[in-house]
Design a protein around this nucleic acid. Structure first.
Lengths: 243, 243
DNA sequence: TGCTGTATCTGGTATAGACAACTAGACGGA
DNA sequence: TCCGTCTAGTTGTCTATACCAGATACAGCA
């Protein structure tokens, strides 16, 4: 219950009480919870205090309100949203498959104009270009090219490219990897993709370009991937945003 | 300023005013904004009303508070995350294009086994099946099929299908639309898609299947879309999640 | 039968005031 | 110089009250 003498704010105690009832399944998704006036009377507190508790829980996604009808328990929150910056390795593990990779190319080259712009570096700057065929449970899943400015990953060698690049790179960065932008489009396999992936030319593939940024806004890398359409689907969970 | 006679809530007007000041750079990140009492006095409104406005903006990430010190302008938000449930109409508007649609098919049919499972209904239940060609700036962009259980959208007619379905449906639902799951894959156009989209057979298309759910967890609709690969790319912004 | 008020629920908005907890700077004494 | 104390200002919490607007059920009328 709610203890008025407690140093904890009353609205906070009420939040805990309601969350507990949800955890204990006394309240399940879709249930109508008592009205604000009812809570206020039961606990001998003001309706505005009840509103503060309920508003917080609405903001956190536990409840939703409907004017004229009441306040209801929301669906169980989706655990880990899938819009996080992940690597191929993480992605495949999450899907229950064993990731591995075969190195195709490892070079240090001068960056092209278009790529320089995306990475925010000078046109003549050096970048690592690492191309790998990515396998899941031993089968070719995608061909992936990473482009990383040399000055952000000094000392990277072919050895590192056999495993997860990030194990080496992450701890040498000036600030942590923070966000990424992915552009997904549909295409068909040309010569190089069809060879690398072992599919006929003209087979559908999913092209994903990922720009990754550090917390301070520095572009960190560019990843261009071509996934076999018959083996890979991209899944996203989206939430409503209350405006 | 704030107009007490306006039908818009006072707290909402104040939110807009503060957001405008931030947009116009009158307030920049790190700035201390006027105190709650100051706002209240200036506008002749109650401090609690000011608090409601500021609390909303804090929740939305525009401001942050420090007890005993004041309220400050937050760092600019990265971008509007795209993990929200959007319709074709919203999506195209956000991309600066004018959405429209051409109705292809409007039927009430018995649901198939596979679809019934996804919608959580009985095998013989009736569903609306609405197929439309979606245009952006007058050009075919996608062909989209919506499948909605009849009992969740009683009274839907062809008329509604010409505009945004949701305008009609949203306010009749037992609880609000809350989250969605999208599965994205690459494919090539077959007979029907090539006709509807005006592209040769075998052209790449982006297939997106969206399952939409209400806040109480009820499956609400299934949307299957085929987008022209030459006109449409799917963009996602992802943030690191601190575990 | 079918429509239409109306009473009475609900959450939404707004007020005025009170005290608590915290911060920062001014002031004065050891 | 250093360290408490005081004070004025801030946000945080809470109360009691009022009226508005949407939803719903039902009585009563056409």
């Amino acid at each position: 219950m709610v203890d008025k003498q407690s140093p904890l704010p009353i609205y906070f105690q009420l939040e805990e009480e309601i969350k507990n009832r949800i955890d204990r399944k006394e309240l399940v998704p879709g249930d109508l919870i008592p009205s604000e006036r009812e809570f206020a009377e039961q606990h001998g507190i003001s309706r505005m205090t009840v509103r503060q508790a309920i508003s917080d829980l609405v903001n956190e996604g536990y409840l939703y309100r409907q004017k004229g009808k009441g306040t209801f328990v929301a669906r169980k929150k989706i655990e880990q949203p899938l819009h996080r910056v992940t690597s191929f390795t993480e992605d495949m593990k999450a899907r229950g498959m064993k990731p591995s990779s075969r190195l195709v190319r490892f070079e240090v080259v001068a960056v092209s104009d278009k790529t320089a712009e995306e990475l925010g570096v000078q046109t003549s700057d050096l970048v690592y270009e690492i191309q790998r065929v990515r396998l899941a449970d031993g089968l070719p899943m995608a061909v992936e090219t990473n482009i990383i400015p040399v000055h952000l990953a000094e000392g990277l060698t072919e050895e590192h490219a056999h495993g997860s690049l990030y194990d080496y790179v992450a701890e040498r960065l000036p600030s942590p990897i923070d966000y990424a932008r992915q552009v997904i489009e549909s295409s068909v396999a040309h010569e190089s993709e069809s060879e690398a992936l072992g599919i006929p030319k003209g087979s559908p593939i999913l092209l994903i370009q990922q720009n990754t940024y550090l917390a301070d806004g520095t572009p960190f890398e560019l990843v261009k991937s071509a996934y076999r359409a018959d083996r890979y689907k991209f899944i996203i969970n989206m939430h409503r945003i209350s405006d």
